[in-house]
Amino acid sequence: MHPALQGLITIFLGVGGCLAYFSLSNLLLDTVICPARGPNAGRNINRANMIRPWLFLFPAVFVLTLYLAYPVYETLRLSLTERMPGGGSQWVGFSNYAQMAAEPKFWEAMRNNILWLIVVPAASTAFGLLAAQLTDRIKWGNIAKSIIFMPMAISFVGAAVIWKLVYDARPLEQGQIGILNAIYLGLGGTDPQAWLTTPFWNNFFLMAVLIWIQTGFAMVILSAALRGIPEETIEAAIVDGASPLQIFFKIKVPQIMSTIVVVWTTITIVVLKVFDIVFAMTNGQWETQVLANYMYDKLFRANDWGVGSASAMIIMLLVTPILVWNVHNARKEMR
């Protein structure tokens, strides 16, 4: 069957199936299981109201359990076992973790991930704050916002191609086609630099791609927060003779601190999962490995599910503090 046709049928089945499930199950509940008539009408209505939420929730909860909750458990199990030749698996305790910890590539990925975790959220938030503050005060602010926000729509792979062109390096005799080298030579550099293959510093050139993408996100959210600051506080500061910089750092930033934290953590999570950029631009060569790409290498190139799952658990472990913090906040808010 042609995939497009299959897609159309899937949309039809998916949407139709959902609607059918919801309407039929409700109908069944109201007319057959707990009819709101007869001697037990009152009790039946109460019962129906107890059951109904679960009818509404069932498909979503089912999918979430199967596709997100169960894999967490299963990955943990896989990380503690080893596949045996000919199927089946054997409990090996923490030896996958030990094997992973003995690999220099893993520690390289850890080091780079920590660098990413420090640099990208900080730089994106700072640029986002700067962009929000600047664009809120100019007439063409909306156009400027759109342009800075635009990379959000571009795939990591597309961004990788875009930036590979920026970083392109050619021998000195030929004209440069990468704008970074052209600028570098224009500013008095002597040799074109191979930005992506110079160990250690190349990590920062990969990070620039993600910063470029995430700044728009930070800007949009921080700009909304900045607009929510009560004007009296700023007016009072102006009357008291505060300089624009003082107003920004001492009046505005403290008032939007909670939003800055949200932006920071959201970008942190994106960083932890970053895969496509490294996969497409260097594939972890030249000391640019990161955890997500290391895991992909282990799972699908080396076919080592044990170590691959162990590295996935490391990513999970790094996400956990944010997860707990988010849940904590959400619960606090609902009370």
Partner: peptide, 8 residues
């Protein structure tokens, strides 16, 4: 939850 965990 990182979707990396869900792959295998």
């Amino acid at each position: 939850v990182p979707l990396q965990l869900a792959l295998i």
